[in-house]
Computed example of a mutant assay.
Amino acid sequence: MNDESREPFKRLFFALGCAPAQRKAIAQWRGALQLRSGRPVPVENFHLTLKFLGSVAVGQIADICTAVASVRTPGARLTVALDRLDVWRRAGVLVLAPEQAPPALLRLVYDLEQALLPFGLEDAPREFRPHLTLARDYRAPVPESTSPPEFFLRADRFTLFESHKGRYRALADWPLGVA
């Protein structure tokens, strides 16, 4: 066994964080749905994934951060409307998603993907579908809501997160606007 195969790995993803007040509002709205299926995502884990990297060798993280620092950003804060409740049956998740993804968000994700290509972190590219996961292992129809989802995720930075034992920890972040 060579040294490289013993190198530790971290489970990583890039995301837009969700402000505490926004997390609280979404959690209260989710509570009113009275879900009878699935496992609710912990409120502190609410985010909008930009790019899931999976298991990454610890030794690659600094190089990934350097590559991502050159990503062209929108030049201003991003606002994403989370105005549609949906069930993704194949993934078994209940999500809040935008009816229409903002072009600046799609450009950011594309540029992020391009910056990460040299690292060969993905076997088969996945179509980007912006969303905030409300519940996992969800096996029921879209729940009825007394009020439609009308949330606006506002982000002034994007973050590299580590997922470890159900908790997310920020490792690095980059401003979306001019510093």
Rank of each mutant, 00 (worst) to 15 (best):
M1T: 09
D3S: 11
S5V: 12
R6W: 14
R6V: 13
E7V: 06
F14I: 01
A15Y: 08
L16R: 02
C18Q: 03
A21N: 07
Q22E: 02
Q22S: 09
A25V: 05
I26V: 04
I26C: 06
V43Y: 10
V43R: 12
V43I: 06
E44W: 12
L48S: 02
T49M: 08
L50V: 05
L50S: 06
K51W: 15
K51A: 15
F52I: 11
G54I: 10
G54D: 07
V56H: 11
A57N: 08
G59V: 00
Q60W: 15
A62S: 13
T66K: 15
A67V: 07
S70Y: 13
P74G: 03
P74M: 07
A76F: 15
A76Y: 14
T79W: 09
V80F: 13
D83W: 01
V87D: 00
W88L: 03
A91F: 03
L94M: 04
L96A: 02
A97K: 02
P98V: 03
P98G: 05
E99C: 09
A101V: 11
P103M: 09
A104N: 03
L105A: 09
L108N: 05
Y110G: 15
D111W: 13
D111E: 09
D111K: 07
L116D: 03
P118T: 07
D123M: 14
R126C: 08
E127Y: 14
H131M: 11
L132E: 14
L132S: 13
T133F: 01
T133H: 01
A140I: 00
S145C: 11
S147H: 11
S147D: 11
E150W: 14
L153D: 01
R154W: 13
R157V: 10
F158G: 03
S163Y: 08
S163H: 05
S163A: 07
K165Y: 14
Y168P: 00
R169S: 13
A172K: 04
W174R: 00
P175T: 00
